[in-house]
Design a protein around this nucleic acid. Structure first.
Ligand SMILES: [Mn+2]
Ligand SMILES: [Mn+2]
Ligand SMILES: [Zn+2]
Ligand SMILES: [Zn+2]
Lengths: 150, 150
DNA sequence: TGCAAAACAGGAACGGTTATTGATCGAGGA
DNA sequence: TCCTCGATCAATAACCGTTCCTGTTTTGCA
């Protein structure tokens, strides 16, 4: 789980991040670096607002729009990914490998679900539609352990 | 596909609809009937706005808020279902049986994908998360045949 | 037919996101 | 090192889909 990676791992990824910026032509500005750091600090799957609040702690001058734009650039160059759940803002993830996340319908906490195998699902879909399939995403919701007690 | 059902089938469902209203305590008002008719007329998987525009043709006094509320009631009592795709408004469906829909990322047209078997996916998920799973939805996007030519 | 409850029309407000504009930054060349 | 110009940024307005609010109309029911 990305939550457990910690600073050491982030620094191991450092060179990869620089490489992606270099290849894209975008510049790794202090704001984009701050957004990346905030994503790490947030730990889980923060919304833009979550990231904004963390970034503002260290640099109160940063604008919300800048965070939106930074996240969009970071996603475009493959440094982060995003996921959408209904009735919830977009959430971002340092884990760019395909994986399953579940969101609590009560407190919005997102956790990763390991060991789920989608099998031949995508090829099944391709065989049964004339559409050119671009993405198939499994959106899972439920009650987190904490909220089950309530 | 619900698009091919036509008026005969809708009238066959008529009694079922009345029954669901009766059991829920909601009343089948003229506006809710108009929304239902509009869903049928729209044919596919219309958004609230789509439904609103059709309803307004016959009754220009109906308010957009009323359409939102009517669709919400119809969904609550199980007469219709809704689905969400990222970057697209909620879409409604007269087909209340579990099934797969794919949305075109270019023109937003939604079509149903038959013959896809999810298998033990949900039980796999339940085994790998402490969350109490409430819903797992497969969200599929692609390019429809028309838009592939463009 | 009369009354309370439900539903409605119209419009304001809302949350998340994108667009616009002018100021600032910073990489690369003189 | 200093300039320059495109990239980025801050601030704020606008946008879109949706919900909420208020006063009015309709409905089911006694
Ligand atoms: Mn994740
Ligand atoms: Mn459908
Ligand atoms: Zn929870
Ligand atoms: Zn299309």
């Amino acid at each position: 789980m990305i939550e457990d990676l910690g600073r050491a791992m982030i620094e191991a990824l450092e060179e990869d991040i620089r490489e992606k910026f270099r290849r894209s032509g975008y510049t790794l500005t202090s704001q984009r670096r701050a957004v990346l750091d905030a994503l790490e600090e947030a730990g889980g799957h923060p919304s833009t607002e979550d990231v904004y609040l963390i970034v503002k702690q260290k640099n109160p001058r940063v604008a919300l729009g800048t965070v939106y734009q930074a996240l969009s650039v970071l996603e475009e160059i493959g440094v982060i990914t995003s996921k959408h759940w209904a009735e919830s803002p977009t959430r971002y993830d340092l884990n760019v490998r395909p994986h399953l996340d579940i969101r609590c319908t009560r407190c919005s906490q997102v956790s990763e679900v390991p060991g789920v195998e989608l099998g031949n699902l995508e090829s099944q879909i391709r065989q049964n539609t004339p559409y050119e399939v671009q993405s198939t995403t499994l959106v899972v919701e439920g009650l987190c352990p904490n909220c089950q007690k309530g």
